[in-house]
């Protein structure tokens, strides 16, 4: 029973981080119909910037987080301005291809600055364990859950009630009609990319805090694909629930069956979902009026 509780808690924290990364995917997809293959590398960049700020610049960690967030916004805006904007109006598939190129580029930049060897992350979250009902959970993981939950709630409200959020969804639905409302599509894209970059950078910091900084951090981007496919590419609740399901699934298979399989199971789920429910659990079904 203890083992079950322990696995559940670990799964939930992994799920919370997955959900954060998935949120970035969903945001970009919702606003521009683009699947961003560079999302994992945004994590990597965030983690390394934080690492650089704390150990190399010597900032206290609160300032370092702030600086990381600001730089992440800048990164999102630059990527949107230089890479994505020239492609407005081009077929979606070419934009998606470009994000794959962007992924290699970011990874190369990071390794040319910081090298490829993994390093321990400066522990900025008190490294103590908290026990909940017999199971032990490190404090950093608990913070990950709380942070993920807060961000996810904020974004859900943003898309439902705020003018900018509604404008973003409107742009995703029909770009030209959005233009005719006076909505600036460029601004919407810039907003989507910078929010995605910030959430990814924060997730990157949380991940690095748990596993250290190295190229492995970017791998989370790949592990999040089953999450967004399961939850639905354009659904924020889907990102949360998909993240939790995949997180739990990974730790349960890891704990009860064996370590190697835990990485495979999410992709089996991915294939099953694509066969049965191609829009995911909460994805928007294309509306066809007959």
């Amino acid at each position: 029973m203890d083992k079950f509780l322990q696995l559940t808690l670990t799964g939930l924290t992994n799920g919370a981080i997955f959900a954060l990364v998935a949120l970035g995917f969903v945001l970009i997809y919702k606003a521009s119909d683009v699947i961003n293959f560079a999302q994992g590398d945004f994590l990597l960049v965030g983690a390394y910037i934080m690492f650089g700020m704390v150990t190399q610049v010597g900032l206290p960690w609160s300032l370092a987080v702030l600086a990381t967030m600001i730089l992440a916004v800048a990164l999102g805006l630059v990527v949107e301005r230089l890479v994505l904007r020239p492609l407005i109006g081009e077929p979606i598939i070419s934009v998606i291809m470009v994000t794959i190129g962007l992924s290699s580029l970011l990874r190369a930049i990071v390794s040319s600055i910081w090298g490829t060897t993994g390093r321990p992350f400066p522990p900025f979250i008190p490294n103590q364990n908290i026990s909940i009902g017999g199971a032990v959970i490190p404090a950093d993981r608990l913070i990950a859950i709380v942070l993920a939950a807060i961000l996810l709630i904020l974004f859900s409200l943003f898309f439902r009630y705020s003018r900018e959020g509604i404008a973003m969804r409107a742009t995703a639905d029909d770009q030209q009609a959005a233009l005719s409302m006076g909505i600036s599509v460029k601004r919407v894209f810039g907003l989507a990319w910078s929010i995605a970059a910030v959430t990814a950078a924060l997730a990157g910091v949380l991940v690095a805090n748990i596993i250290g900084v190295s190229g492995v951090v970017a791998g989370i981007g790949l592990r999040v694909f089953p999450v967004v496919i399961l939850g639905g590419l354009d659904s924020i609740p889907g990102a949360i629930i998909g993240g939790v399901i995949i997180g739990l699934l990974e730790t349960y298979t890891g704990g009860y069956i064996g370590g190697g399989l835990s990485q495979v199971v999410p992709f089996i789920v991915l294939i099953l979902i694509l066969m049965v429910k191609p829009y995911g659990l909460f994805g928007e079904v294309r509306i066809e009026r007959v």
């Binding site: 003018r163 509604i166 969804r169 995703a172 009609a177 409302m181 006076g182 928007e284």
Partner: peptide, 19 residues
């Protein structure tokens, strides 16, 4: 017509008031 299909009626109207 070009309404925003996935938004509800009221959200469509809010999108119209964007400027």
């Amino acid at each position: 017509r070009r309404v925003f299909e996935h938004l509800d009626v009221e959200q469509n109207l809010i999108a119209g008031s964007y400027t």
